[in-house]
Design a protein around this nucleic acid. Structure first.
Lengths: 122, 122
DNA sequence: TTTGATATACGAAAACTATCGTAGATATTT
DNA sequence: AAATATCTACGATAGTTTTCGTATATCAAA
């Protein structure tokens, strides 16, 4: 089974992750802010995600409620693994440095990272 | 013009980046180690990449030689931008911390990152 | 110079993804 | 209860990406 979400599926997962549990309409209205596709498009995608096992749903009510079966962390890890191997030659530090360089992390972000790195000191 | 390489195109670019200049056969043999697709598949993909302007080629000899027209750094940045916005809620530090956490960066890598971060002190 | 290996070109099929329209069920409003 | 709104199901289409077969050219070896 292929657990790797497509681009559109990720957009949907984002909404579900944020809200915890969503109807198709919830997701659709959120997506409609930045994108314009019909309601049935979102519905169909979510049905496919259900077939794939990316989400589960409660069909008790007329309007079904969806929950994610893949965590944001899993998706993050999958995305990282992929780009580290395809464009960063397997080097995590290359990725980190490139990320910090171009994205001009804020002072808070830099501090968060420094804090994190302290655990490696002894 | 769409400069964003597809998944397969990235696999090919990887080989070209590593070797600097490649014939279709060079790329194909490298890919064949991990994947099995026919020679003409690789050829076709590289021809499409040429049409798209992702690579240039020298057709003097019978066997054409391809060079990348997009740098590894550009591709890295594109890949980072995408995943930061789709799975990391726009947070670079989330990405960095997740990357360091799971990938168990080596001491050298950690040191490289610490060095890099020093530039933000003053 | 004929044969065999290796190239490119390129159309077309296959696979995957995204989009939509329509049908029919269920709920809500008047 | 009839009309209206909202939901799911699902087939069909369109778009993109990947794969491959076949034709044809070029080179090297017998």
């Amino acid at each position: 089974m292929n657990l790797k979400p497509t681009e559109s599926e990720l957009e949907i997962l984002q909404v579900i992750w944020k809200k915890g549990q969503c109807s198709v309409r919830d997701v659709h209205e959120e997506l409609a802010k930045n994108k314009d596709a019909g309601y049935t498009t979102t519905l169909k995608l979510m049905q496919i995600m259900h077939e794939k096992g990316l989400v589960e749903r409660n069909t008790d009510a007329k309007s079904h409620l969806y929950k994610a079966l893949i965590s944001r962390e899993q998706a993050q890890q999958g995305a990282l693994d992929k780009i580290i191997s395809t464009v960063f030659k397997g080097s995590t530090s290359d990725l980190v440095i490139q990320a910090l360089g171009q994205h001009r992390a804020s002072k808070d972000e830099i501090d968060a990272i420094k804090d994190y790195l302290k655990q490696f000191d002894k």
